[in-house]
Design a protein around this nucleic acid. Structure first.
Ligand SMILES: [Mn+2]
Ligand SMILES: [Mn+2]
Ligand SMILES: [Mn+2]
Ligand SMILES: [Mn+2]
Lengths: 150, 150
DNA sequence: GATGATTATTAGCCTATGCTAACTTTTTGC
DNA sequence: GCAAAAAGTTAGCATAGGCTAATAATCATC
C-alpha cells in the first residue's frame, strides 16, 4: 500500500466492487425464479376461475407453444410446485400455492402502485409483469404505502 | 355463439387472453437484452473511470468468472456493441455507446426514484439493477417527474 | 361407440448464460 | 531480460427456456 493513487487499490474501492457484484448476483438469482413465479401465479388464477389449469390455457396466456409449457411444467413438478398426471390438468402443491399467493400479492401491489402513479392500465400491467420479480420487501412496503396514501 | 356461458367463449375474454400474452411476450423480449445492457453500461463506466475496460474488472464487478465474461463479450462483439482484440481491453462501438448512455440514463432515474421514495441506498442500488430493464418509457417519465417533485 | 377436432406429449433442435480445467499471453518486479 | 504473477482464452460441460414436427390421448358430437 505504498501508492494509494493506484487504480483499484483502496479498501473502499474493493468494498464498492464487492457490493456491486452482490447486486448483480442478486439480480441473477431473482431471474432464476421469474418463469416459475409467473406460472404458479397463472395456474392459481386458472384454478380459481375454471376449477383447473389446462396446459392449453397456460399456453394461450403465456404466449408460448404447448411444448414449452410441457417442459416448464416438468421443471415445476420436479421442484415440488405442482402435481400432474399425463394428459391431465395441473394442480398446485402446498408449496406452489404458497408461492402463488406471495406472487399474486406482489403483483397486485406493484400494479396498484403503478396505477396510482398515473400510468395507463395497459402499460401498468405490462411493466408490473416484469418489475414484480425485482422488488425487494422494503421496496414493496414503500410501494404499498404510497398506493395507500394516494 | 349459442351458449355464452361457456368458459372462454366471449370476444372480450379472447382479447384479455391476447393482451395478457402480449405482456409476457414483451417481458421475455426485455429479458433478452438485460445482460447486454448491464455489460455496456459497466464498460462505459470503466472506460470513463480508467480509460479502458478490462475483462478482469468486468468480471469482478459483475460477479461472474472470466470465461463467462469472455463468452458474453463475444456476443456483444457479434452484435456490434463492442470491438476487441485478443488479450486487449474492450471498447464500445458507436452503437454500444448509444446503448450505454440510454442504460445509464434509465438506471439513474430508477435509482433516484427509489431513493426519493425513502429506500436505503444499498437496497435501492440492488433493486434498480433489476427493475431498470422492465420500465417502459411512460413509467420512466413518471419516475423522473416524481423524483424531481420530491 | 366411431370419428374428427382438440389437447397433450415426445423427440430433437437452438441460443443464452453460467461453470471448471487447461493453456497462452501479457505484465510486473527484480 | 527473465521468472513469476496476473490476465485472457479455449474447450467442454450444464441448465433454462424457447421452437417445430411428429405422435398420442382425450373429448365432443353424431
Ligand atoms: Mn411476471
Ligand atoms: Mn405476475
Ligand atoms: Mn441491470
Ligand atoms: Mn444498471
Amino acid at each position: 500500500m505504498i501508492d494509494d493513487e493506484n487504480l483499484e487499490s483502496t479498501e473502499a474501492e474493493a468494498r464498492a466492487v464487492e457490493s456491486r457484484a452482490e447486486a448483480f448476483i442478486g439480480v441473477r438469482e431473482a431471474r432464476r425464479s421469474e418463469v416459475a413465479e409467473d406460472y404458479v401465479e397463472l395456474i392459481a388464477e386458472l384454478i380459481h376461475e375454471n376449477g383447473e389449469a389446462r396446459p392449453v390455457d397456460i399456453s394461450a396466456r403465456m404466449g408460448v407453444t404447448a411444448p414449452t409449457v410441457a417442459k416448464t411444467l416438468g421443471r415445476l413438478a420436479r421442484d415440488g410446485l405442482i402435481t400432474r398426471a399425463k394428459y391431465r390438468s395441473v394442480f398446485l402443491t402446498e408449496e406452489g400455492r404458497a408461492l402463488a399467493k406471495e406472487c399474486r400479492h406482489r403483483h397486485e401491489i406493484v400494479l396498484r402502485f403503478l396505477l396510482s402513479l398515473g400510468l395507463d392500465p395497459e402499460t401498468a400491467e405490462r411493466d408490473a409483469e416484469g418489475i414484480e420479480h425485482h422488488v425487494s420487501e422494503r421496496t414493496l412496503a414503500l410501494f404499498a404505502a404510497f398506493a395507500q396514501r394516494s
